[in-house]
């Protein structure tokens, strides 16, 4: 029971890191970015390639797995995404599905379609006992790292000048512009950070979620579920949603394996029908 809970929490926190960038793009730019998983995949491949082909230690690859997708994200945001912000949601969907398909195909071409395997450093393997409960070391590591990221994100959003400008831009783009806030720069920076976080999540997720070129499609639904259920009003909603989904998915797969992802999807539909704005809706 408790090991499943811990597994679920680790999974949920990972989902949150993966999806937080998507929550921001949706909340800030009102852009439905189905290609978010492609940035996460990029981070995963950065870590995998650095470790397997260049012998770089796991921990050292993590910052790179953040930076590379962040840079790619910044460039794509300025060149491709920004001109589409004012378009219809249908256009967002078409564009970002297209981008996802391109990423999947290009990755297959460059890296092959096989699963990427990485060997974790010894201190992250195996289990340790805490109050008599066996806990996977990597699970514990995930919980600690993701919790630190959550706290850091929350602090950046609530305590820094960037955070207050970001929140102003989310509340009202026009007013923010009127106050002299450079909304475009904030958008680009936020998109980049969101893509970077996705990349970091992708890298952290390799041992747990696996990694192959279909990653963006396979996990797209999970990221979207986190964001749609959590709502885009802040990070608290998606965080809560990610934990619920993480625990529910792990528990569902353990106790009712034959149902597969049935339960999660059903849960999502029910929640969305009851609360189309998400668990924590934006105050109007």
């Amino acid at each position: 029971m408790i090991p499943i809970l811990i597994d679920g929490i680790a999974y949920g926190m990972l989902l949150f890191v993966l999806a937080s960038g998507l929550a921001v793009t949706l909340g800030l730019m009102n852009f439905i970015n189905l290609a978010h998983g492609a940035f996460a995949m990029a981070g995963g491949y950065v870590t995998s390639v650095l470790m397997n082909s260049h012998g770089v230690p796991f921990l050292v690859t993590l910052p790179v797995a953040f930076v590379v997708p962040a840079l790619v994200g910044a460039v794509l945001e300025r060149t491709l995404y920004a001109p589409l912000y004012e378009r219809s949601h249908l256009d967002h969907v078409l564009f970002s599905i297209g981008l996802t398909f391109m990423a999947v195909s290009a990755t297959t071409w460059a890296m092959g379609s096989q699963q990427q395997l990485i060997s974790l450093p010894g201190w992250l393997e195996g289990r340790f006992a805490l109050f008599g409960i066996a806990i996977g070391r990597y699970r514990a590591f995930l919980i600690v790292v993701c919790a630190a990221l959550v706290v850091a994100l929350q602090l950046v959003l609530t305590r820094t000048r960037f955070g207050s400008r970001l929140r102003a831009a989310v509340d009202d783009r026009r007013v923010a512009r009127g106050l002299g806030i450079r909304v475009e720069t904030i958008f680009a920076a936020t998109f980049a950070v969101g893509s970077g976080l996705g990349g970091l999540g992708g890298a952290l997720g390799v041992p747990m979620l696996g990694l192959d070129p279909t990653f963006p499609l396979k996990y797209m639904v999970y990221f979207l579920i986190v964001v749609t259920i959590g709502g885009t009003a802040g990070l608290a909603g998606p965080f809560l949603a990610a934990l619920i989904i993480g625990v529910a998915d792990v528990a569902g797969k353990y106790y009712l394996p034959e149902l597969g992802s049935f339960l999660i999807t059903l849960l999502m539909i029910v929640l969305l029908v009851l609360r189309p704005q998400g668990l924590i809706a934006r105050a109007r």
Binding site: I32, V221, L266, M268, L272, P276
Partner: peptide
């Protein structure tokens, strides 16, 4: 909303 419709249909 558009997004919840996307997710419900996909779901």
């Amino acid at each position: 909303t558009d997004l919840s419709r996307l997710m419900v249909t996909l779901g």
